[in-house]
Computed example of a mutant assay.
Amino acid sequence: MAEVRRRMRFHGRVQGVGFRYTAKYLAQSLRLTGWVKNEYDGTVLMEIQGREMLIHELMKGLNRSNFIQIDWIDTEDIPVEQESSFYVR
């Protein structure tokens, strides 16, 4: 399967609840690449790259948290990049 890359902006209770480190743990365990960072407006911005099915698994994992509350996500497909890890910015 081909890899895809998505830029996703998460709205809701997503800062100060372990979102970035949960995303990092899940992405690394699924061998996804990209990055995640907090934004000044209270959202979290993430670029995630890998197989579609694995990105879907990461999203299910984020939604299982008792602390994270995702109200909505703005999603945009972007070009695939050459990278080898997932990190917190």
Rank of each mutant, 00 (worst) to 15 (best):
M1V: 09
M1L: 12
M1F: 06
A2M: 13
A2P: 11
V4E: 14
V4H: 12
F10D: 07
F10W: 11
V17R: 06
G18P: 08
R20I: 06
Y21R: 08
Y21P: 03
T22I: 06
T22G: 03
K24Q: 11
Y25A: 08
Y25D: 07
Y25E: 15
L26G: 05
S29I: 04
S29D: 07
L30C: 09
R31D: 15
G34I: 00
W35F: 10
V36M: 13
K37I: 00
K37R: 08
N38M: 03
E39K: 12
E39N: 14
Y40V: 13
T43A: 12
L45Y: 10
L45G: 00
L45N: 12
I48C: 06
Q49E: 11
G50L: 05
E57F: 13
L58T: 06
M59R: 07
K60T: 04
K60V: 14
K60L: 12
G61W: 07
G61I: 05
L62Y: 11
R64G: 10
R64M: 14
N66I: 04
F67I: 10
I68G: 00
I70D: 14
D71P: 00
I73A: 01
I73Q: 13
D77F: 06
D77Y: 09
I78M: 01
V80H: 02
E81M: 05
E81K: 15
Q82P: 03
Q82S: 10
E83S: 11
S84H: 08
S84W: 13
S85L: 05
F86N: 01
F86G: 09
V88P: 00
R89I: 04
R89T: 12
R89S: 13
R89D: 04
